[in-house]
Design a protein around this nucleic acid. Sequence first.
DNA 1: TGGCTTTCTTGATTTGTGTCAATTTCTGTT
DNA 2: AACAGAAATTGACACAAATCAAGAAAGCCA
Lengths: 249, 249
Amino acid sequence: MMAPDDVHPVSLRCGDCPIRHRAVCARCESDELEQLEEIKYYRSFEAGQTVVWSGDKMDFVASVVSGIATLTQTMEDGRTQMVGLLLPSDFVGRPGRECAAYNVTATTDLMMCCFRKKPFEDMMGRTPHIAQRLLEMTLDELDAAREWMLLLGRKTAREKIASLLSIIARRDAAVQMRAAHGRMTFDLPLTREAMADYLGLTLETVSRQMSALKRDGVIELEGKRHVTVPDMDRLMEEAGDDSDGGFLV
Amino acid sequence: MMAPDDVHPVSLRCGDCPIRHRAVCARCESDELEQLEEIKYYRSFEAGQTVVWSGDKMDFVASVVSGIATLTQTMEDGRTQMVGLLLPSDFVGRPGRECAAYNVTATTDLMMCCFRKKPFEDMMGRTPHIAQRLLEMTLDELDAAREWMLLLGRKTAREKIASLLSIIARRDAAVQMRAAHGRMTFDLPLTREAMADYLGLTLETVSRQMSALKRDGVIELEGKRHVTVPDMDRLMEEAGDDSDGGFLV
DNA sequence: TGGCTTTCTTGATTTGTGTCAATTTCTGTT
DNA sequence: AACAGAAATTGACACAAATCAAGAAAGCCA
């Protein structure tokens, strides 16, 4: 899921930025990082605010510093589908593209570290490693999107919920550098409605299935958002999922 | 959907290969094309044959020369979801990845032009334009996958069918360099079962909705596979889709 | 041409999820 | 502590799509 440092370059801090930008390759030497420093700026958003609308001109690329943002697609009649979840260090934006392809919305208070697109692209042209790093990240996202297609097209509501919970649990484990086995505890970063938009369900169905998983002892709930999974293997079985979980992370 | 030549480099023929490889950038001069020539070879498959299994080692990248291949994901119990459709000139394979992420299957007789992965990667390292071209293609695929997520998660069976038909019609138009308006005619390259796997439906539902669209005059059918659309705008309305159709192409 | 298989269509019935509506629980504010 | 608004739960019912089951049409090969 994530290669160790000696196998492949990983993200790097640039200047005073509190996060490691996954788009920036550790093999690229300080010259490039100093260039980044010059073209970067910060923007913050309140929970619920829209970062960009689908189709709008987007003259920057960015990393999430803190908070959570979602990528959503919407139909004219209001049906919406979440197509991606942005967590700290995640990258957003398309070098070589004028316009945003999705709505980007802050679901919590959000801080982003932005780079003006043109100079960023110029740097990419001069720095093959960054282009390759970005290609690799995009391929990861593509894999994640396609795994999600299987979920959306073929899984039952219960399996969908179990899949989402297991992904969030494993991402949490990864952040804390722990293995994702046995008993685990975490907070849901999403409302029931956001979960529904992610899974292609209604919020009522999400709620019902959460209750069912609780009733069946697959999860325990403390309040609405704090989840503990007594047995991760059981949960992953419920998810109907043999994958190692390279999901939308 | 596809930028004109003067805006961005497009695909190019290399040597005797009958197709334009979309992965190869026209800005890259003949040196690189000659290098490609040295590392390329052809493989052919019969309809129904598997090109690679998910998880298998895949030591090449390739372009489709002729025929159609599908990318599918499968669950242990056999539920399958198609996650991509490969048409002539489409690229498959992941520079920087060891293993295939999906099953690749020939749905018709298939000819592929393959490049051994290592030398291809080396060339990418030396030729920034190719890496950038590949990044752009991958971003296109990502957009397509995400548009498909909206379809899988939120569209009705009828809308799904209409979407698929309109995509195929528009791709056909693009290949023949015609506008996709008014009356259009094309052959379905997929069985009802493949359509179902693509759309997250059963083949019975696909059949029923095809009949319904026919009954309602949205499409005309001659045999099972030959479709004519009297009015493309009507079809796109049925698809519930305001997009300009940058789909899995 | 005739049989054979595969692909597709159509019907009857079941089931999972959506819809609508009422209530409860949580969270933040004064 | 009490209230207000948001978020979540639960129930009753409706409906779209799945499932089960025949049968028809198309393609293929002898």
